[in-house]
Amino acid sequence: MLDIIINPFITILLFLYQVLGGNVVLAIVVFTILVRLAVFPLTLKQQRSTKAMQELQPELKKIQEKYKNDRERATQAQWELYRQYGVNPMAGCLPLLIQFPILIGLYRAIVATLAATPLQLLDLSGRLWMPDLSGVVPLNNKFLWLNLAVPDPLYVLPVLVVVTTWLQQKLLMPSTPTNSGDKSTDQATAMTRQMTTIMPLMFGVFALSFASGLSIYFIASNLIGIGQYAMMGKIDVKRLIGRQTEDAPAETVKKEAVKSTAQAERPARTGKAGRSVPSRPMRKSKREGIYDSRAHRAKAKGKAKG
């Protein structure tokens, strides 16, 4: 089934390779940019949904505590909360599910076109939508000191994969409180921190064992991702260099959570069904560097009315 994605990807990659003068690295980079641009609306939607869900966490915890002995009522209250803030908890999953086969297709296309082994090369046959591209198969695997079909013997690329993956995660992940006082929040924070460490290392291990052409893709993808979010003004460099104290936002979240729980018990403040204006907990401190357009619009609307 994935052939529907893999075959055009292979064709596009080979086409780029041909028109870019046989430079396989350039072809992979341009290809990555094109794919990231294509899935950008989905990425954006997923990011927004994740952020919205994150901001509702304090409220959800309150509900869970309040109805800890009545799961049915807890679920009802949760859905009421989602409805009130116009958040669909599944909205983050759909873009992810759509992106998932695309990423696999991309990975498989790069591995297939580099054709390090006979089975990989055999797997290329019958996949080209433009038969004229047969003449460029397999891709020239030489770049600087690298044979792109095998792992980097100098370990430069695995190191770059680890660094860029870590950098991307550090810059893009929403900040989390170090010590919220709430056990489950602290556990979630610890898990997030572990993931920030484990994920780059895991990709580093992949880079050690897989074709270095794939490492080029990882690095390009990470850098393009960082660039993409930088252009959207969603990167907080202060967090990277550790200048931001993480306790302050935690404090804000805690205080706002208390207020908003009470508000959650009340009916929605706007009459627009399914698209209600988020109340204070949806807003983030400017110091977190994340701009919440819905909260901003709501504020502007409020001012205009007032």
Binding site: L96, F100, L103, T165, Q169, M199, S209
Partner: peptide, 16 residues
């Protein structure tokens, strides 16, 4: 993040 985890799993699956 989740994409990363899933991709990692896929890579493993593909390798195996």
């Amino acid at each position: 993040m989740i994409i990363g985890v899933l991709l990692a799993l896929v890579l493993l699956l593909t390798a195996c």
